[in-house]
Design a binder for these strands. Structure first.
Lengths: 107, 107
DNA sequence: TTTCAATATCGTAATATTGCAATAACACAT
DNA sequence: ATGTGTTATTGCAATATTACGATATTGAAA
């Protein structure tokens, strides 16, 4: 096979894995950090900042965007990627809920 | 290509991605939750609990174990997987540090 | 020591992910 | 309308991940 058997898990478990997947690649972690560091809206300089090609960056941005983590001006010559802080906060809460729920021990 | 260009990112960014990767598959999320739910040490019933084959579960357990998230008795007929709570807590802290550092906005 | 149950490893197939070159699409200015 | 610069899409190659059957290994009990 090779594909994850998504149908055998609960909705919340799949949701958790999906969220984690966004952060499971260093390029996406770097992009998120870079975006948040910018005072003003950033444009195409992510490509210069990180050592990856423009198509690859665009691909990673799409993953981040599909997760709902971006907002801003998406039309025009210089598109503006900004962090959707509300959504980001939501992710943090979900993570912490999972961590706190799973923190028991047995031996 | 197909391989992540790990060498172009900082150590902390790669660490973050590595941690996230552990939780980026529903089977591993389910395994961690199941382990934590058990009152006593669990054995081979993870295979029965989750609908995956024994080799596949073993593979996922290895990923979790390589991340340092397991402890317990690893020899004997019924091996005992328990959550390494200290390590788990450490992961949670790293996550929160990343989230808190990245929570700024621009537009 | 032989047997048994539990876990790990090997080999392999299928799918997913990553990355980039080439190209398209798009918004804006001239 | 024609460039120009920016981002998205397509196509493809390389690698990683997921999954399982078959088999090996292991520790304990008989």
């Amino acid at each position: 096979m090779g594909a994850s058997k998504v149908d055998i898990y609960s909705e919340s478990i799949n949701a958790m894995a999906s969220i984690a997947k966004v952060f499971a690649h260093p390029a996406r972690v770097a992009i998120l950090q870079y975006i948040s560091k910018q005072e003003s809206c950033i444009c195409n300089d992510i490509v210069d900042e990180i050592g990856l090609s423009q198509p690859t960056i665009s691909q990673h941005l799409q993953v981040i965007n599909n997760a709902g983590l971006l907002k801003g001006n998406f039309k025009g010559k210089s598109i503006c990627y900004c962090l959707n802080v509300e959504r980001f906060q939501e992710f943090q809460s979900q993570f912490n809920a999972f961590f706190n729920k799973t923190k028991s021990n047995c031996c």
